[in-house]
Amino acid sequence: MGIGTSIFLIALGAILTFALDASVGGINLDVVGWILMGAGVLGLIMTTLIWGRRRQVVTTTEQPVEYRQVEERRDIAPPL
């Protein structure tokens, strides 16, 4: 679940819980809203934890590669 999906679930849950005053037979929209907000917050936390691990810097202790000097010879005549 991405950050956008998590924010969408939080917003949808908040709308169902706080802004909507309707009743549907057999379904409590306040509970559905709280569940959606909880799922959105959980998804947001999980996404940030996973993304945080991806952005860790990996350092190596290897020595740099030795560089070789390349010389160009100009004393040879070009082909005719």
Rank of each mutant, 00 (worst) to 15 (best):
V41K: 05
A39H: 04
I10C: 13
R55H: 11
G4T: 05
F18N: 06
N28L: 07
G26L: 06
D21Y: 12
F8K: 07
V57R: 08
L49F: 09
D21K: 15
D30H: 13
I3G: 12
G13Y: 03
L36T: 04
V24H: 04
A39Q: 05
L12H: 04
T61Q: 13
T60W: 01
R54K: 13
V58Y: 08
L20H: 01
A19F: 14
G43S: 08
I3P: 04
L29I: 07
T59K: 11
G40Y: 10
L49S: 07
L12R: 03
S23R: 15
L44Q: 06
G4H: 08
G38N: 06
I35R: 14
T5Q: 12
T61Y: 06
A39C: 11
G26Y: 04
A14S: 15
A19T: 11
G33P: 02
R55E: 12
I10H: 05
F18I: 01
G40F: 03
I15M: 04
T48I: 15
L16P: 00
N28Y: 03
L36H: 02
G52W: 09
I45F: 12
G2Y: 12
G33I: 09
T60D: 11
L42A: 15
G13D: 03
L49Q: 10
T47S: 13
S23V: 14
V41I: 15
A39L: 15
G52V: 02
T17W: 09
F18K: 01
G33K: 11
L16H: 06
L16A: 09
A39K: 00
R55F: 10
G43T: 00
G13I: 00
T60Q: 07
L36G: 09
R55N: 09
A14Y: 09
T60P: 00
L12P: 02
F8C: 06
S6E: 01
T17C: 07
T59Y: 11
S23M: 10
G25Q: 09
T61M: 07
G52L: 08
T5W: 03
A39M: 12
G43E: 00
A14N: 05
R55Q: 12
D30N: 14
S6W: 02
I3Y: 12
T60N: 07
V31M: 12
T61I: 05
G40T: 05
